[in-house]
Structures are given as C-alpha cells and as structure tokens.
Write a protein that binds this DNA or RNA. Structure first.
Lengths: 217, 217
DNA sequence: ACATTCAACGGACCACGGTCCGCTTGTTCC
DNA sequence: GGAACAAGCGGACCGTGGTCCGTTGAATGT
C-alpha cells in the first residue's frame, strides 16, 4: 500500500493535434485552479486504490470523497457523475492503448501496412477491454455518453483512416461504426462469458469481417 | 383517460415453440397466483398510463406502486428492478414487431425471398426502435441483460436463419451479432440525433452491409 | 369445512447518487 | 499589498432504487 507511482498527471494529456479526422469537436477543458488540480489527482489516486482493494463496483462516490479528505460535492463538481469518474480512471489506461496504435510498433503502429493494422486492431481492443473489464462496465453505465467519448471517437477516426487508406467502398463512417460495434465491451463480454466463445473465435470473426468490409470495391 | 383496451394479457405470451435455433435457453416462468397475476397486469397498465402522461423517465417505481395501490415491494418482487419493468412494458410492442417478421406479409414475412427479408429487416427495426425510443433507452439501463433478452435472442435467431438460407459464408452467429449491432438502439439513436444522419443514410448503410456480409461465399 | 403451506404483500428502512447554497481561497489586476 | 472576482469547496439534504421481514390469504389436500 505504499505509493508506488506518480500516475495521473495533474492535467489531462494535451490534445495531440495530429489525427483530427473532422468527425467531432474536441472539447477544450479550461485549466483548473491549483488546488482543484491537486484534488483531482488525489481523487483519482484514491479511487484507483479503493478499486484495487475492493473492486470498482464497491467503491461509492462518498467513500472516494472521504478517503481523499474532500467533500462529496467536490467529487461531483470535478467528474460530473459516477460514470465521469470511471471514464477519468479509464482514461489513463486508454491512453496507453492509444499510443500503441497511433505511434507504436507494427503491426498496430503506423509502420505496418493498413490491412495489417486493421487486422491487428480488433484483438488488441478486445484484449485491452478484457484486461479492464469491470472498469469499462462501470464506466459505460451511461451508454449514451460512450459514443461521444474521446476514446471512442479516436478509435472511430483511426478505423476510418485505415479504411480510407484501403480504399474500402461504401459509407466509411458507418462501416467504422459497424466494426467498432463488433468490438464493444458488452458484446465481447457477453460472447466470451455467457456464450462461452473463445477469444480465438472472436479474433477469427474479426479477420473475416475486416476482409469483407475493408476490401477495395 | 377512460380505459380503452385490454392490453397486457394476464400471462406472458406462451413460448411459440417454432424457431428455436438452439442459441439459448428459453427460461420457463412458473405461473403466478391469481392475485399476483392481477397485480401484474394492473401494474403494467398503470405504468403505461403514467409513462404516457409524464414521460417514462419521470415515472418512479414508487409512483407506479402507489398508483396501482400496491406496496413498492410488490413491484420489485414482480419485475426485479426498474429495467425489468421497462422490459416488460416493451415486451408488448416487441411482440407486434416479432409477428411482423415471423408471420407477417412480405417483404418482412416468410413469403419473401431471404435476401429481401434481410434487407427489409434493418429499416423495420430502426423504425420500431425510434417509435419507442425512450422506452428502449430506459429498458437498456442494464445493457448486460439486453443481450440475453428473449427479444434480442429472437432477432438474432431470425438473422442467423436468413443468413443460412442465403448460404452466407463465415461464422454465422458472429455475423448476425455484427448486423444486430448496427441496429442497436443506442448506436442508431446516436447517429440520428447526435451526428445528424438521416434514416435514409442508415438504411443505405444497412443495405450495403447486408450485401457484403450476406453474399454467398 | 378446516388445516397447512408458502407465494405474495406492504411499507418501513437503507444506501447511494446527485444537488444546493453559503463560505473559503486561489488568481488577477491595479 | 490589497481589492474584486470567480472557481472551488463541503456537507446537509433529497429522491429514488432496492431490500427486509413480519403478516396475509390463495391454493391444495383431507
């Protein structure tokens, strides 16, 4: 229980302006006051800690507030609601994944051919979501928000980019949505745990999907 | 406000054994005591009424209980939780839709060729979900349950059936899931309201999808 | 008719998410 | 340094979903 790492840098990662893709507006956040920023990181640290020791599902907003020695109102002011806190927690892991396919090594990163990257994308997402399963489930409590989340938007843009590079036919944005839908946390989880499918089968399904939807017209 | 129709028959519609598809278990419900059944229908009627007059989002479980002159515990005993009540409400509309594509006229029903039916399926679902938008949103509060719901299972089985008739290649079950994912309430809603797409565009996307995923190997 | 049993009932009770508003404190500008 | 301002803070408060458990009364067998 000693504090090992300086995770959760004070400010949100600055928008790395590269891939814009003109799909949505990247909301700008107005910079926090010093004490607020301090509290923000404390809250995230504490929340992660509590989640680790008792499972994210058993972490109440009040508990987080108390453990971080702030009022409950502060937590809500900062994160909006429970899903917001979860999203913020998730954000950290999400960024790891993002760098993996934005700037990482092949086959995920930009040095591999588009078809390769597209193939690799699916299993990477599924693995990642499995690793942080409960957090994803908790965060997507409000599913409506999910589709507008920066993370999802980024994935979408990435897929659209690859599809365009492949000269895939049809309505690219819709095809990208279809592909992302296949990788959705809840669907994948359902297929794996309820229907007892193997990760390999899901991966094979993905390869097939990509081949049929990504093939040039 | 006069009571117009005898909706919500006392018992759940009996399982019409036809299309089984061996995809899940069809749970059997153990038959209710007379008073319980009476209460069940009263609750559903009252809930529908309240939903109509103040919007489903503003209908609390307690309000339903009070309006139906039963204790709150009774509501929860019957429907499990809020999502359960919503699902039960939805069930009625759902059955209309189901008969439309199980036994109705072409192009949805069994007298049209499989390719036609598959094409028609998408817009039909989207229209239906739009018509009952808020109910769907409220019901899918717990998304995990959604995938196991009988309604979803039926759609899945239907799609799988059509795909098989078309001799579509690949992992049929996964392809069916992909197609259904495209029609998901939340996704469709997001694309229509947030991203401002037209129903026509979604429909066109569906036709394209169906063509590429349903085409014989 | 009566006894037995057990699903169903009611509503007090609890926990948690979320809001509100009067007070405090960092920031900025002179 | 000090004044003016807005952002941040805390925690009492509220509504709602969900649980618990003692009581009631259908169903069923004799």
């Amino acid at each position: 229980m000693t504090e090992p790492l300086p995770l959760f840098p004070t400010a949100q990662a600055p928008p790395s302006g590269q891939v814009d893709l003109t799909l949505t507006v990247t909301e700008e956040r107005p910079r926090l006051r010093a004490d607020a920023a301090r509290n923000r990181t404390r809250l995230l640290e504490v929340a992660a800690e509590l989640a680790a020791e008792r499972g994210i599902g058993n972490v109440t907003m009040e508990a987080v507030a108390t453990a971080a020695k702030v009022g409950k109102g502060t937590v809500f002011r900062r994160f909006g609601d429970r899903a917001g806190l979860m999203l913020a927690l998730l954000d950290h892991h999400e960024q790891q994944l993002q760098t993996a396919f934005l700037t990482g090594p092949p086959p995920l990163g930009p040095d591999a051919p588009a078809a390769e990257r597209l193939r690799a994308f699916g299993p990477a997402i599924i693995r990642h979501e499995r690793a942080h399963r409960d957090l994803y489930l908790a965060a997507h409590g409000d599913l409506a928000r999910h589709y507008s989340s920066p993370a999802n938007h980024l994935r979408l843009g990435h897929l659209a980019l690859l599809l365009r590079q492949l000269k895939a036919p049809g309505d690219i944005e819709l095809v990208a949505h279809t592909l992302l839908g296949y990788l959705g946390t809840l669907l994948a989880d359902h297929l794996l745990t309820q229907r007892g499918m193997s990760v390999e089968r899901l991966a094979a399904g993905w390869y097939d999907l990509v081949e049929r939807l990504g093939a040039a017209g």
